[in-house]
Design a protein around this nucleic acid. Structure first.
Lengths: 244, 244
DNA sequence: TAGATTGGCTTACATCGTAAGCCTGCAATG
DNA sequence: CATTGCAGGCTTACGATGTAAGCCAATCTA
């Protein structure tokens, strides 16, 4: 009587690591990575929790797998692309990916997981800088600085209000609950943010602010690069000509 | 017979929120925030888990309390201090605090918790910029950019090897397990990092790299500030004279 | 002295990751 | 074709964990 339809279950295509991770990705996007449990994950696959362990060693492996999936979504231009353009593209892409999967940034920061996908990502970014005239030490430094800003900005951004509803909620808090006397400078800043919130989202949320900061850093790095190794008369050509 | 010594327990000074949070801080420093459980925390206080709930609403409140304790440790110069100096001081201080409590940065990024301590911290930083000639929009932008870099850098740094033992472990991985063919640029960068690791730690770990990046950003912001509101002939004086 | 309050404690429950081992149908082998 | 191995599910069970509910003794207050 327990075996009502012994076939029905067996008929579905067998699970595999790939399908498990894809399901985890969907579930994380829907409910957040914090409420991603092995039992819940199994349920979305029509399976019992312990069945997952035939395809993944443990939950940590699922999380690391998620990181890999997300890193793979980041668009890194091919080796030889002019560095400023390349850094812009990959930074913007990383940001979009992290906003699409709102749990991703925190997960990447909280886990070590030097998987092939992540190593290759780092290698590609470093390669772009190296092929654009950066020395090894400077390429390393630039990488660290850009990534600090990139992921630091994203982490902040994830806490900001997005929907109009949240925004007006914040606005209420600003004008009512937070007393102006206690936090005068914070108040004026919040007021400014609220007042300009419309024009500050261009083709996405908070794009403009992110881009300005990034350009600031790229400018600074360009100066460093030029000081470090005097460029040929036409820097952009010498940069892109490395592989073309 | 259960009441062997009804007095002994009652004699110790009663718990309070303060002592609970201090114990949580110590425990987190010792074992990491991930393995901070209400039961474990209670144990270090010689008390049962549920007793904590007389002084704290729930675990989230403990975590938010930890954030407050940590934020309070950050050294923010008084209003009116010249902005570059002030930003340097508070960035360095925040970094030291986050390295001292290695769980703090992640906790701050993962929780929202707009507690008075945090709001006041933000207010103080914004105030410093405002008093040094930054307009409201620019002060806000500068705040976001500096903090992005600051906490982004720290989050990266927390994953880097610190002890000499870890370092030589990484060195082994670099020269052996990671194949040079697969990640050429990553390899050369790691080799450089390993080779220069001695001179790169000055009075602390990785101080030099952090400072260079910060100066880069402060330079860029200085340029922005001067372009935004043309300074008087002697910018530093006009900056500090605002409140003195 | 009576009553209320404070601050501990016990018990209980849902949820989590996962160890151990069972069962069944398909596939390869004799 | 029969046997057997095993891939890939399932069941059960254990020890965390956060915390709701309620108990009880010591202390403070009227």
């Amino acid at each position: 009587m327990a075996k009502t339809r012994p076939r029905a279950r067996a008929r579905r295509q067998p699970l595999n690591r790939e399908r498990v991770l894809q399901a985890a990705l969907r579930l994380a996007d829907r409910e957040g990575v914090a409420s991603l449990s092995m039992r819940g994950l199994a349920q979305t696959l029509g399976v019992e929790a312990m069945s997952l362990y035939k395809h993944v060693a443990n939950k940590d492996e699922v999380l690391d797998g998620l990181i890999d999936l997300v890193v793979a979504e980041i668009d890194v231009p091919p080796l030889g692309t002019e560095w400023r353009h390349a850094m812009r593209v990959r930074a913007m892409s990383a940001r979009q990916v992290c906003l699409r999967h709102r749990w991703a940034a925190l997960l990447m920061e909280s886990r070590l997981s030097q998987s092939p996908a992540r190593l290759q990502y780092a290698d590609a970014v470093l390669g772009l800088l190296r092929c654009s005239g950066f020395t090894v030490p400077l390429a390393y430094r630039a990488f660290v600085i850009i990534d600090s800003y990139l992921y630091g900005y994203i982490m902040q951004e994830l806490h900001w209000p997005r929907e109009e509803a949240e925004m007006s909620q914040v606005e209420q808090d600003v004008t009512a609950q937070l007393s102006t006397a206690d936090y005068p400078y914070l108040m004026e800043a919040m007021t400014h943010v609220m007042a300009t919130r419309t024009e500050r989202r261009v083709a996405g949320v908070y794009d403009a602010d992110f881009a300005t900061g990034l350009e600031l850093i790229l400018d600074a790095l360009a100066r460093l690069r030029d000081a470090d190794a005097p460029p040929s008369p036409m820097p952009t050509i010498s940069a892109t000509s490395a592989t073309h």
